[in-house]
Computed example of a mutant assay.
Amino acid sequence: MSPAAPPALECRSLHKAYTGSRIVLDGLDFALGAGEFVAIMGDSGVGKSTLLNLIAGLESADSGDVLIDSTPISRLTDDAATRLRRQKLGFVFQAFHVLPHLTLAQNVAVPLLLNGMPPARALEMLAAVGLHGRGDDLPRQLSGGELQRVAIARALVHRPRLILADEPTGNLDPQTAHEVLALLRAEAKASGAATMLVTHSEAAAAFADRVLILADGALHAAPLAPLASLKAARDA
């Protein structure tokens, strides 16, 4: 019997406090397996963005470890952490963060070029997110929903182990948000990437396999009843 694959992401006893002794994370433990989609919810200011930043190695915990594919990112040099982010992580943000002077194909190809990989897969990913034949278009020619599709293609193009999505539908209308989240879920599942979605939206969280609430420095399972009807609508 082969050993179980290690988690794509593991947080071990993460502690983080800010000036004034405000504790944000208090010994947080968490693991996310390949292909799993989890949503993190919580009130504003509880530390959701801080948690994402710690996972990405953009901030340092006061103590504890973050492991990406079994590698403790918090113990790497800055250069090594940057290489790990380029290779193992994909990011989807509320503000899209596409480069306005680059074509769609060039935007999606950025992670490939940073990793020394051939850029041809960019066109495949654009087709996968419903933008076939649009590679030469510029971002100004797209709607908000289309721009978020470009962001998803860019996040997945280099086959990362972990996708971090920070309020990716916050600027979209409900129908477009539903379409974008369905696409993100389907493409992440197809690639086997683990996905962490940070959101205030219960409708968005319903796309996840499990929903956790960040409160009092720890993650807690969300009540299932309020999400049941939303999950049913997702699968309809």
Score class of each variant (00 low, 15 high):
P3Y: 03
A4R: 12
A5G: 06
C11L: 14
S13L: 06
S13H: 14
L14R: 06
L14E: 07
H15F: 06
T19N: 07
G20C: 13
S21K: 11
R22W: 05
V24W: 01
L25Y: 08
D26V: 02
L28R: 05
D29K: 00
F30M: 10
A31L: 00
L32K: 03
E36W: 01
F37N: 02
F37T: 04
V38D: 07
M41H: 00
D43M: 08
V46N: 09
S49E: 14
T50C: 11
L54R: 12
L54E: 13
L54N: 06
I55E: 09
A56W: 02
G57N: 08
E59H: 07
A61R: 09
A61K: 04
S63V: 04
G64F: 07
D65N: 12
D65S: 12
V66G: 05
L67N: 01
L67Y: 11
S70M: 13
S70A: 14
T71N: 02
I73C: 10
I73V: 14
R75W: 03
D78F: 00
D79Q: 10
A80D: 15
T82A: 15
R83T: 11
L84V: 15
R85V: 09
G90R: 04
V92F: 12
F93G: 08
H97W: 06
L104E: 11
A105F: 04
N107C: 12
V108R: 03
A109H: 02
L113I: 12
L114P: 00
P118H: 10
A120P: 01
A120N: 11
E124M: 05
M125V: 01
L126D: 10
A127W: 08
R134H: 07
R134A: 14
D136I: 02
D137S: 15
P139K: 04
G144T: 06
G144W: 03
G145P: 13
L147S: 09
R149M: 02
A155D: 05
L156Q: 01
R159L: 11
R159G: 02
R159K: 13
A165P: 05
D166P: 03
D166M: 04
T169C: 08
T169I: 06
L172V: 08
H178L: 05
E179L: 07
V180R: 05
V180K: 00
V180A: 05
A182Q: 15
A182L: 13
A182S: 15
L183Y: 10
L184C: 02
R185P: 08
E187L: 15
E187H: 10
A188C: 11
A188M: 07
A188N: 11
A190Q: 11
S191H: 07
G192Y: 00
T195R: 00
M196I: 15
T199H: 03
H200T: 03
A203Y: 01
A203S: 14
A204V: 04
F207S: 00
A208N: 06
D216S: 15
G217S: 05
G217E: 08
A218F: 00
L224V: 13
L227C: 04
L227K: 00
A228F: 10
S229I: 03
L230S: 02
L230R: 11
R234L: 07
D235S: 10
A236T: 12
A236C: 11
